[in-house]
Design a protein around this nucleic acid. Structure first.
Lengths: 362, 362
DNA sequence: ACATCGATTTATAACGATATAACTCATGCG
DNA sequence: CGCATGAGTTATATCGTTATAAATCGATGT
């Protein structure tokens, strides 16, 4: 790899940083003396060192064929003129972008979601040649659109995404294309694929057991929309627990974790007002948990006494929510770290797909 | 502009989308017949139409010099083979990236913040040649690092960012470089620059007036860290109101909007336990408002009775928070829309800087 | 008939990097 | 003395696009 252009070590102090009145001219020279009227390229360094462009290129990528002394000299010259390789040219020639793209739906439920995950991914990518960029995607267009766009335009060398569906088009597409990716959540496709998932079966199993142990006799669970694989996992864990214990239950069919929070609140409030009102709630997300809490409040129920609630916690939000509720933590920063790590591993060379799968326990 | 590569119209139905067992081969042919063993380029289209590469290029960019009939023919042929211009090559040749970069700090306070803003920006960019990508930045490294990186490596044609400081290094740098940008929030630099800001003076002025009108006699405001310009605005609005009304007040010096929410809660709880406890709180952010609420709860205060709270609302969170609190809304989606629009205007040609400044009223 | 013009189309040269193959030139060995 | 060896360096071609200048050709005007 040529000059490490990732960390902008702050060694170039602009002396004119304080000159306010000066009109902005495009790409004003950064160096005190007018060494660089325009951006330095390999040619610039080549002329400076009286070597061929090719030699400079190889020297900068630490090719052992180039004499060590030459490599040092070139590296020094390159740094002197502030040479940075042109990403576009590198990309055109090599087909590599040095970019990893996270396709993220800045959905309401995303609250802490994206944040922590991004944090983990950035951490895992720090020190590598790769940059993380986020491509926003909104649920009003097909999930696969941004993915196709990235692949076709080679906007990245690898893709990360979440909200994986049981028959995920993105997974199919990327597998076909042989394009590196790791997704958060599994599919139910026959072909194995790389993923990082959280044990949502265990989550709702444990949540249900906990509610029942606390005395709840009618459980209500709000699931993700059915197309997401983890909806099945959550349902399954929930069903196993309620069957084992033989308590009444309901699975919301009118609202999902992705519903507007007002809709969730209204629906829950309605159910709470009924004769057969549930006394225990399970929410796989923070927004829906807030909605359940407001519904309880609005109908005069006290959380922790009249009704109980177990929610999945992915941010620090519930640390400040009162009354306190029971939460089960999903470490999304770790998930992000893992996803990026597995992607790197995958791009590093042929790896059996089993080594690219990870399940986070609750 | 050549073929619109933004919207992946879903016209290519992969017939083998269901073939699971098939091993993934890199960039398998998408078309039924093996027309394209490899990615089609201008050359491909040129051969097909028996025209020169140059002609095809110009035809696709709707050059009036090319006969209309030819343009139509070329466009058709390009579509037939699924031609998409190579971004890297375009970028190398033209120096344009067709990318706009939002540098975002996925900070805790960001909750709804980023989400809405991104939504607005995406909306404003829809239908243009530009793509929005988000470059995450964490507060443990200088704010200017990712900006420098983007400019030096020409990772984008324009930059958007938030959390503007009074003497913002990024603004200075970008002005010097003549690089297009719009920031959320103003600086206090002498040079005027493009920005979109919210009237935070009015926010805290109105918040304070409202609390006083409701009977509060000792106001407590939690400000952003002092380096951010809007900290000054908020302070000023607050001070004006309390002076006009002659009530007691305190400005938190131990915690800021960026403090960990636990720290805010502990501090507020401490103040609430004191003899001279405040009875009215103003929070410029959602996380800190939650912290104030939990502190009130933990010390046995009832929000809306014993103490009051006015918070800035940027997401739907407070719709579900109970008891309800008074909020003042800041429309971040609109801010994002505006920022992107002003950036486009700026990149479109020389525009007086006054036309690139916007202030959102409360 | 010939220069000129307008409407099209095209050849050529970049943009900045790297993969490939070829070139130097001193050294070692038979 | 000639030739293979190999370390070190370099020339050339190419990635896919577009800016620039030039070429083609029938039609027009004098």
């Amino acid at each position: 790899m040529p000059l490490d252009d990732r960390d902008d070590r702050g060694e170039d102090i602009d002396p004119d940083t304080l000159q306010q009145g000066r009109p902005a001219r495009p790409h004003a020279n950064r160096l005190p003396r007018d060494t660089a009227q325009k951006k330095p390229t390999l040619k610039t360094v080549a002329e400076l060192t009286e070597l061929a462009v090719t030699t400079v290129s190889r020297a900068l990528s630490d090719d052992p064929q180039i004499a060590l002394e030459t490599r040092v000299r070139v590296r020094q010259a390159a740094e002197d003129v502030g040479y940075l390789p042109d990403r576009a040219a590198q990309r055109l020639r090599t087909g590599r972008t040095n970019v990893i793209s996270l396709v993220l739906d800045p959905h309401e439920e995303i609250l802490g979601y994206g944040t922590s995950m991004i944090r983990g991914m950035s951490a895992a990518l720090r020190g590598t040649r790769y940059h993380l960029v986020i491509t926003p995607h909104f649920s009003d267009t097909p999930q696969i659109d941004p993915v196709k766009h990235i692949v076709r335009n080679r906007m990245a060398d690898g893709i990360l995404f979440s909200r994986t569906e049981a028959a995920d088009e993105r997974v199919k597409f990327l597998m076909e294309q042989g394009f590196p990716f790791v997704c958060h959540g599994r599919t139910e496709l026959a072909t194995p694929h790389p993923y990082v998932d959280y044990d949502n079966y265990a989550f709702s199993y444990r949540a249900a057991k906990s509610l029942i142990a606390a005395g709840c006799r009618r459980l209500f669970i709000i699931l993700p929309p059915a197309q997401f694989t983890f909806a099945h996992h959550m349902r399954h864990g929930f069903m196993t627990a309620v069957r084992e214990e033989g308590v009444a239950f309901e699975i919301s069919d009118r609202v999902s974790l992705d519903s507007k929070s007002d809709a969730i609140r209204d629906h829950v409030a309605e159910r709470l007002a009924a004769d057969d009102a549930p006394d225990g709630f399970i929410c796989g997300g923070e927004v829906s948990a807030m909605a359940v809490m407001s519904a309880a409040y609005d109908t005069g129920r006290i959380i922790g006494q009249d009704v109980r609630l177990v929610a999945k916690q992915t941010s620090g939000l519930f640390d400040q929510v009162r009354p306190r509720i029971e939460t089960i933590y999903e470490d999304l920063a770790e998930a992000g770290r893992l996803m990026a790590a597995l992607l790197l591993k995958q791009m590093g060379g042929e790896v059996p797909v089993e080594e690219l799968q990870a399940l986070q326990t609750v």
